[in-house]
Amino acid sequence: MLNHIIDPVVHWLNLAGTVVFAVSGGLVAARKNLDIISFILVGTITAIGGGTLRDLLLGVSPVGWVGAPHILWICLISAALTYFVAHIIELKHRWLLWADAAGLALFAVVGAEVALAHGTSGMVAIGMGVMTATFGGIIRDVLCQETSLVLQQEIYATAAVIGAGSYVVMTAWLQVDRPLAVAIAFGTGFIIRALAIVFRLSLPGYRRKSPDSGT
């Protein structure tokens, strides 16, 4: 079970990430005017999609939420409550971005830690952190026919890379105390994503060069 692999700090981070991603899925469902069952479906997939893929690739048996069914209850309750309160939240898209940013930063750290606990290299752990943080949201956006945040110009996956990467560097290489590493890595990933939201920061996109330019 996931609880036996990671320490209590990261365990609670995982639960917090589950809540905020389930809420973010519910907020997308609200924008699409879906029913409560769809809220629960979208919220649950958003919350557990990335972790499920990570555990399958790492060969974890059983997959985290199968061995810890309370995670499904957390998803169900969080998404269902969102159904009843989403209509009183103004600027739903802005709330979605902030909820998603928190979940992104949380799950990037959790994914990297779970991978390290299974003996992967630092590079693989970073990849698993990014996958944990982004894959559930990708499935959410596909189901709801939204343009995925990963494919938008604003910095998104980059924040997950930096969050997971900073955690791996601090714990695997610099031997920083894990609770401190968790706090710093989460804060780093969240701040980078927050700055991207507020200031609409993005990395330079590819620009096709004209054949007549000579370059």
Rank of each mutant, 00 (worst) to 15 (best):
W12H: 14
A196K: 08
L201Y: 04
L201F: 11
Q145A: 10
I192Y: 02
L116F: 08
M1C: 14
L104D: 02
V142Y: 05
D55C: 10
V19Q: 06
H4E: 13
I155T: 04
A101P: 11
P211G: 01
G122Y: 07
L76S: 11
L149C: 05
A105H: 09
A16D: 10
I40G: 12
A101Y: 04
F190W: 14
V9R: 03
G26T: 00
I138L: 15
I192K: 01
V20N: 10
N3R: 14
F84S: 13
L195W: 06
A185L: 07
K32P: 11
K32G: 04
S213K: 10
L195Y: 10
A22T: 00
G119F: 09
S121A: 07
H11I: 04
H11R: 13
A160M: 12
H70T: 14
V176S: 03
R207F: 02
I40R: 10
V130N: 03
S166A: 12
V63I: 11
A125K: 08
L201S: 09
T132M: 03
D141R: 01
F39W: 04
T158K: 11
R208Y: 09
L15F: 05
T147H: 13
I48R: 09
V42H: 11
Q175G: 12
G59T: 05
L27A: 11
I5A: 11
I5T: 13
S166L: 15
A172Q: 15
Y167E: 01
H118L: 11
E154S: 13
T82Q: 04
G127I: 01
G49E: 00
P69G: 09
S213C: 15
I77A: 13
Q152H: 11
Y206W: 08
A112D: 09
Q145K: 10
I74E: 06
A185Q: 08
V109E: 03
L15N: 14
V110N: 08
R94A: 15
W173Y: 15
I5H: 09
S78Y: 01
S61F: 07
L91I: 08
L149E: 07
I6A: 10
I37Q: 14
T134A: 12
L97H: 08
G17T: 01
V124P: 03
A29P: 15
A133W: 03
V161W: 05
G103N: 03
T46G: 12
L76N: 03
V23M: 04
V66R: 05
T44C: 00
V124H: 05
G51Y: 03
R200A: 14
P62H: 00
V124G: 04
I37A: 15
V19E: 07
I45H: 11
G103D: 00
M131H: 04
P8Q: 00
S121V: 01
D35G: 13
L201Q: 11
A108K: 12
E113D: 15
Y83P: 06
T82W: 04
A102Q: 05
A133S: 14
A159V: 14
L116G: 11
T52S: 07
R31K: 13
A112W: 09
L143G: 10
M131R: 05
G189T: 08
P8T: 00
A79Q: 04
L97V: 08
W73V: 15
A115F: 09
Q152M: 12
W95V: 02
R208Q: 14
G43T: 02
V182K: 01
